[in-house]
Design a binder for these strands. Structure first.
Length: 315
DNA sequence: CCAACTAAAAGCCGGACCAT
DNA sequence: ATGGTCCGGCTTTTAGTTGG
């Protein structure tokens, strides 16, 4: 099993959004990757440019960012050819690692556009190095640029940023600086393909919390009314924890609830509803055992939301 | 420029409640 | 019945990151 640290460069419609092909706003023009063994040691590299079929000149702004010569792209191979070779090179059981979450998304959109079969397993787990840097070195929420982190960690420079191969190399170097076990523990889940049925629903145990990814629903209401989505089983004993504060929302994006497990204590619930490419809705629910002081914070937050609405109405 | 994510604020709407 | 306020749920808007 190898770790595949990869990065993509892509282009967009040079004539503005109106003229773009709605099926593919971003067209991949380079795939770069570094292969690491179990010890995170580099064993191989992959680098190839891709001949565009949609956008044959660079968008003004991407030309500023990327250092690519559009002329050389015309001599490059097509996306299906390069992508096939890339996945062969990745081997049979790779763990994909990226800087941020957008690369796997755009890669799959390009695969779909070209009518290619998905080479990925379902569910697709991967390692987001940008997120894990924040978890280990910062607040867990910030998202730093690759250049910022490379400077912070005094990584050897000399190769340009915003090139698929060199960014893969930088990303792999950041990866090597992280605590390995923590990194492997906090893997991410790709949501390009989401569970289409009960059978495909995903339940994952992390160290201090559990994560559940539901099947899709027609709308938000259906999702939140679903018994399995709304349920709050304690992830240690599997028994239902009793709701003290039912699901509520403070910012329209996340729902929270507070419940109590007779054997394991306070349990915080959080649901984030997300939309699929087809505009359907699915739920990502995390359940976490917490202490009394954090339980109180949820009670306070519920209170704050109520007061905020009060103030808002009176003004 | 375009897309995704996050957070906060503002706006909309209908039901519950209350006083008239 | 009518009008006003409160409240919860939801959407939209705005601003600031990141990615290319």
């Amino acid at each position: 099993m190898d770790y595949i640290v990869f990065d993509l460069e892509w282009n967009q419609c040079p004539d503005g959004k109106d003229k773009e092909d709605k099926r593919l706003p971003f067209e991949i023009i380079q795939i770069g990757a570094v292969k690491l063994n179990e010890q995170f040691e580099e064993t191989d590299r992959f680098n190839e440019y891709i001949r565009p079929v949609l956008y044959k000149t660079l968008h003004f702004h991407t030309r500023e960012i990327l250092h690519v010569d559009i002329q050389s792209l015309r001599r490059a191979r097509s996306f299906p050819e390069v992508a096939s070779d890339f996945f062969s090179w990745c081997g049979t059981d790779p763990v994909y690692c990226t800087w941020g979450s957008s690369d796997l998304l755009e890669l799959q959109r390009n695969l779909t556009f070209h009518g290619m079969e998905s080479p990925f397993p379902f569910p697709l787990f991967y390692l987001d190095i940008q997120k894990n840097f924040s978890l280990q070195m910062e607040d867990g929420k910030s998202r730093r640029s690759l250049e910022y982190v490379s400077n912070l960690l005094n990584l050897p420079k000399g190769i340009p940023f915003h090139n698929a191969l060199s960014d893969s190399i930088y990303t792999s170097r950041v990866m090597q600086k992280l605590d390995k076990q923590a990194l492997l523990d906090y893997f991410s889940i790709d949501y390009y393909r989401v569970p289409g049925s009960r059978k495909e629903e995903i339940l994952v145990q992390y160290g201090t919390y559990s994560k559940f990814v539901s099947k899709t629903f027609a709308n938000k209401n259906d999702a939140m009314r679903d018994r399995k989505v709304a349920s709050t089983p304690c992830y240690l004993c599997k028994k239902p924890a009793k709701k003290k504060i039912r699901w509520f929302t403070g910012n329209s994006r996340n729902y929270y609830c507070l419940c109590y497990c007779e054997t394991h204590g306070w349990l915080k619930g959080k649901i984030r509803l997300k939309k699929t490419e087809e505009d359907r809705v699915f739920a990502v629910k995390t359940l976490k055992l917490i202490g009394t002081e954090e339980a109180k914070r949820i009670v306070d937050r519920k209170d704050a939301v109520r007061r905020k609405n009060q103030r808002h109405r009176s003004s």
